[in-house]
Design a protein around this nucleic acid. Structure first.
Length: 570
RNA sequence: GCGCCUGUAGCUCAGUGGAUAGAGCAUCAGCCUCCGGAGCUGAGGGUCGGAGGUUCAAAUCCUCUCAGGCGCGCCA
């Protein structure tokens, strides 16, 4: 939409340059905004103000010259010069009405674009350690990552969603030992369960599994069987996590194992590469990477004095792999408590000579669960944390995903479970989904009165096939009967959807879609309440059904991006 | 102490350098012979944490400052 307006303005500038009215050749970026006030037009540009100093003319004077040219373009109702030198553009009615046809034709594709130009992007998210079930914080990262991936796809990027599994290291070993001890316990042995081991009930469940499957086969007093328990535990928990994610509507394209980096020798290879560049040194028996030469606060250990590699060592190998796999943009979604880690990973990329601006890290701030406004206690001990599963079971996947996206990622989120469950307009999920269901109901009602939606199929539409029994085409729907201000306001809102999707993709801010849908629903409900769609006036009814259908399409497309269902009945 | 994030209406939050800063909730006052009242209408409510600066223009950019959260491991 804005692209079209931008073309009109560019054309006007060109005209002015040709006839000598404007001399500047190097033009600033054309910024088009949608003014807050209706009387400032549908679109406004500040280009005249930006050209003012170069041209040596008053902004308003330049604006007048441009306005004169813009008025010559098609579908322009009015062009004003206002304030310090804004050019306010009012589009003609046909411009907006034609948009309804566009939506009708594009259906599920309305909102999509190709600004991503097929660039390969990787979104890595969740990547929770396989040491326990996903908690509510992981859920927020999951919702943001998955939605962002959807939005980027809609904007024409080629997206790979990936989960990095930390399946080696101390934590997984402790996990294996925890399972081993629970297993022995089940077999009636007296064990001492260390305080730093995993105490969650899920470990006992897994131990019970082993007893059922293998009996006392691994009942040894020594620890030879520990690797078995480690693997069994990690695999069992990954299964749980995968199930949680699947039920949350998320499918990853790739599960990348940290262990595989070691197996393929990539960790040592990466360290060798740093060695060759002589940015590695030995100190106190450990091997250090001179990240502080590349913007990090201090140097970091890659190989500990005991010979073990650090997590950082395998992580740089992983990031090197990502780049080698040909992604032109890497998006990492991390919990905010990992932000201290950013410097060293950027340091690594810079050390290898990569442009670290191709790495974008989105930090997800904390989620505070509330119940009727009162905080739900979330201690970290003894599995007191609330799992994603529990919340999903209580309020449903849709509400859960939506609520995670009602704030920008870098703001803390208050998540009220009771509000999320409410079937009332103060619950934003409900409010948006209800708009969709309501439109479906209106269409159904119209059908019962003999007005069929297929009648809305415009003549020549690709959905029409030979033998189509619906003889009437778009000309039967006289959309010019849509004349109310509310109707145009809604159409204009629908018109901005593709720009919202693009902006959301480029800024990597999925919450913009959530806000947009709430705003759209907030325009539709009052319109419905004030104006009857299905009346005795067939022509008007058809036109309004056509508008409703467009609203429905956009709500549905938006909800699809969020991974939330668009119910026809509620 | 250093670094990152946050600070906007009573509360929760939008607001990619633009014109008179917005929404929801809450509060108050209203609306159901009618396509889904599971909804709608209206009102009040603001030193954009504070102080400087940059410019035609700052909630937005820069510096300083105050408050809250998080991080500063040979943990992951």
């Amino acid at each position: 939409m804005i692209a079209t307006v931008s073309d009109i303005i560019k054309k006007a500038i060109k005209e002015c340059q040709q006839n000598g009215a404007i001399k500047t050749e190097e033009l600033p970026d054309i910024i088009i905004e949608k003014p807050k006030r209706d009387d400032f037009g549908d679109f406004a540009t500040n280009i005249a103000m930006l050209l003012s100093s170069k041209e040596g003319k008053q902004p308003r004077q330049i604006a007048e010259l441009l306005a004169k040219e813009i008025r010559q373009s098609e579908n322009i109702k009015k062009v004003d010069v206002a304030g310090p030198g804004f050019i306010n553009i009012f589009m003609g009615d046909n411009y907006w009405l034609n948009l309804l046809k566009e939506i009708y034709h594009l259906k599920g594709k309305y909102g999509a674009s190709d600004i991503g130009a097929g660039k390969k992007v990787q979104v890595e998210f969740v990547s929770a350690n396989p040491t326990g079930p996903l908690h509510i914080g992981h859920g927020r990262g999951a919702a943001v990552g998955d939605t962002l991936a959807n939005i980027l796809k809609a904007a024409g990027f080629e997206v790979t969603k990936e989960y990095y599994i930390n399946d080696v290291g101390k934590q997984v070993e402790i996990l294996g030992r925890s399972l081993y001890l629970r297993y022995l316990e089940l077999l009636g042995k007296k064990v001492e369960f260390p305080d730093d081991h995993y105490k969650g009930a899920y470990i006992k469940d897994i131990a019970r599994d082993i007893v059922t499957k293998f009996g006392n086969k691994y009942d040894k007093t020594n620890e030879d069987s520990l690797p078995f328990f480690t693997n069994f535990a990690a695999e069992s928990i990954m299964k749980l996590i995968k199930k949680d994610l699947a039920d949350f509507g998320i499918e990853f394209d790739n599960w990348y194992s940290e262990k595989s980096l070691f197996d393929k020798g990539l960790v040592l290879q990466t360290i060798d590469e740093l060695k060759k560049r002589e940015i590695i040194y030995e100190k106190d028996g450990a091997t250090w990477f001179r990240t502080s030469d590349f913007g990090d606060d201090k140097d970091r250990v890659l190989i500990k004095a005991d010979g073990e590699k650090t997590y950082f060592a395998s992580d740089i190998a992983y990031h090197r792999e990502k780049i080698n796999r040909g992604f032109s943009m890497l998006i990492n979604i991390w919990g905010a408590d990992h932000h201290g880690y950013e410097g060293r990973i950027r340091g690594f990329l810079k050390a290898l000579g990569y442009d670290d601006s191709s790495l974008k890290i989105i930090f997800i701030q904390l989620v505070a669960l509330l119940r009727n406004g009162i905080p739900v206690p979330m201690g970290k001990r003894e599995g007191e944390f609330v799992t994603l599963r529990e919340v999903m079971d209580e309020i449903g996947k849709d509400a859960c995903r939506f609520f995670f996206l009602t704030r920008k990622s870098d703001a803390q989120l208050e998540f009220d479970l009771e509000l999320a469950k409410k079937q009332a307009p103060e619950n934003p999920v409900f409010y948006v989904q209800y708009a969709h269901a309501r439109i479906c109901s209106i269409i159904k009602h119209a059908r019962e009165k003999g007005l069929h939606l297929p009648k809305l199929v415009p003549a020549g539409s690709p959905t029409r096939t030979f033998g189509d029994k619906f003889k009437q085409g778009t000309e039967d729907v006289n959309i010019k009967l849509l004349s109310l201000k509310e109707e145009f306001d809604i159409i204009k809102k629908l018109a901005s959807f593709p720009d919202i999707v693009k902006g959301s993709a480029l800024a990597m801010e999925p919450h913009r879609i959530t806000f947009y849908l709430q705003e759209l629903a907030a325009m539709f409900h009052p319109y419905y309440n004030k104006n009857r769609v299905v009346t005795e006036d067939m022509q008007l009814t058809n036109a309004r059904l056509y508008l409703c259908e467009a609203v429905r399409t956009v709500i549905k497309n938006g909800l699809n991006l969020l991974g939330i269902s668009a119910p026809e009945e509620m």
